[in-house]
Design a protein around this nucleic acid. Sequence first.
DNA 1: TGTGATGTTGAATG
DNA 2: GCATTCAACATCAC
Length: 266
Amino acid sequence: MPELPEVNSFKLYFDKTTLNQKIREVEVQDDKIMRNINGDDFIEKLTGRTFVNSYRRGKYLFGKLDDGNDVLFHFGMTGDIKYYEDDMDQPRHERFAFHFTNGYRLGFDCPRKFARILYLKDLEKYISEIGLGEDALIISENSFLEKLEGRKTSIKGFLLNQKLLAGVGNLYADEICFQTRIHPGSSISALRQKQKKDIYKVMQNILSIAVNRARNYKEEKTEDDFFQWRVKGQKAPKGKGVCKVEKIAGRTTYYFDIYQRLYQSK
DNA sequence: TGTGATGTTGAATG
DNA sequence: GCATTCAACATCAC
């Protein structure tokens, strides 16, 4: 489900509901999403602990425990968190839940189990091991341009690569290409410096608007102006082309032909 | 009923 | 070694 803005809203939600609350009990229904720890060990490590801080980088959310260890929450495609009290509010595909001493719980919901939970003794080491790029909202223009340097892949492929830039997913990548009027399949080496700067500016603008709305993804989908144009066959602004659907960089990609110009290197 | 979906990874390929 | 592509993961909705 979530890209950078949605994970950011998860962070706000996590901070509001979970920080500084003692975990009385941990319930694990399915530890399949736990990658470096099993359910029993997870229960043992987390029971009695308290999350004291959190850190988001791209689509990764880290919860800092009072014993210095971290828990990584990566939401995959369908991950979600819910704070609730009654059994009847339990999410349908809850995989684990923290029960706090105040009687409330934080449940981790994930139908498709693409989410990943890791228990980390050294957060910095983990980030460097997986080579996670700088957060797309924090990266400087210079650093962004540096990452583009010498790269031959498509602009969409670049935006989606979490090692180069963390946080942009399939939908926002399409939105950035749409707003810059650049065909997502354009090769980076064919873009002029001005266009590269434009991509940076538009990316930050889109992400900060989405973050400031501080909504969750479901609401955003119906109320947001973003992504509404992603409808196959729809006419482009000013009638300059039609919305096409194509696999680019391995993902289903929407774009307007003609309206979004394709830049190819010779 | 088959198909594809907001993400990542590891194997395969160039 | 590096860059890129693709299948696989599991479930649901259309």
